[in-house]
Design a protein around this nucleic acid. Sequence first.
DNA 1: TACCATACAGAACATACGTTCTATTTTATT
DNA 2: AATAAAATAGAACGTATGTTCTGTATGGTA
Lengths: 201, 201
Amino acid sequence: MKQRREQLMDFIGHFQRENGYPPTVEEMRCGLRWSSKSLVEHHLSALAASGIIDRQDGKARSVRLRKTRDAIYVVPLLASIPASPPRDPGDGFSGDTIQLTRDILRQQPGLYALRVKGDSMVDAMIHDGDLVVMKHQQHADNGDLVAVWLPDSSETTLKRFYRENGHVRLQPANPTMKPLYFHPSQIQIQGKVMLVIRQLA
Amino acid sequence: MKQRREQLMDFIGHFQRENGYPPTVEEMRCGLRWSSKSLVEHHLSALAASGIIDRQDGKARSVRLRKTRDAIYVVPLLASIPASPPRDPGDGFSGDTIQLTRDILRQQPGLYALRVKGDSMVDAMIHDGDLVVMKHQQHADNGDLVAVWLPDSSETTLKRFYRENGHVRLQPANPTMKPLYFHPSQIQIQGKVMLVIRQLA
DNA sequence: TACCATACAGAACATACGTTCTATTTTATT
DNA sequence: AATAAAATAGAACGTATGTTCTGTATGGTA
């Protein structure tokens, strides 16, 4: 019965969520009203072979559903928009972190968060106090909302990025404001906005 | 040393997050470079007595940091802004849910989420496609961003709420738009915006 | 039917792991 | 310094738990 394996997966996930730690083989057998441990072991090793679960040899309660592994992950919270890209992960680190679920944002390398101060980014529909999660990268695709360092005004701002025949157009989100045009070598992309979180209460 | 207990708590949390299951006493001893298991046991029982951790007698890997128990919680995702408040939790339920961490929003009863469709709320700095987490409540405090049902236009909109000598002022976030005034009995508050999440990528 | 792969039962075994105990050291208090 | 309280070491012990093995049932296929 293929049903069995799904029952097993369900039980493991349920137990883990309920108790905070994974079940033992015996607990699975008992919880599923199965009649032998080896049966559980049988399906367990099948699931492990399919890569659906992880287990550690001989260790108690070491089954783990793969998909829930990184359900929560931690993103460092920087003090402010860095003048230069945070090459060193500890650079500008405020000491604080935020936890995210993959429902909100998929985990990927180079993520960092910062709390927006002031209303300099209202034109990007971003409030004072908003939490912005960015991904550190030097390139951008058309339409991305990116943090760029502008050499002439010596500041970093958030703009929408468009590459157009030889130059770069930086478009404010606010339609009443005029776009800026630069040569690609003039600007330096520091990262891309992945997520904006506004906490009202 | 009080330091010890915090080290222990940190280690347990870290290990749990890293491995998906709690550590054994020996793993704690080893990971913390302590020299005896009974020392770990000693502090473990102290933490348990303080209610900081939970353990199950004799069970392997059954330590659990209390505070992380509900680190993730589930909020139902409604299909759209409900015409009437969702008294029944399953009302308008899209079948989907989102998971949040308390870093983002503290868990509390009456939370539901909805995906904004259209640009009818740009004036509240809310985009098409944004995810809005609301709390179902009939009252509001001054300054709250609330969903209200307006009888004359027969629609629900998001406005900032202000109670002023006998009437209610509903203020659009966009300063160029004029506020609306109503008698308190005319409007019906459906909920309060707790969180706005904009997923850019 | 004969055959084979897979699903299941149940016991036996080895070890991972929590618990307890006694003794020794450190820290705080007077 | 004297004393008590807490912290620490280290070993011993018993149970919890994963693993393995042998054997039986079941279901599909030639």
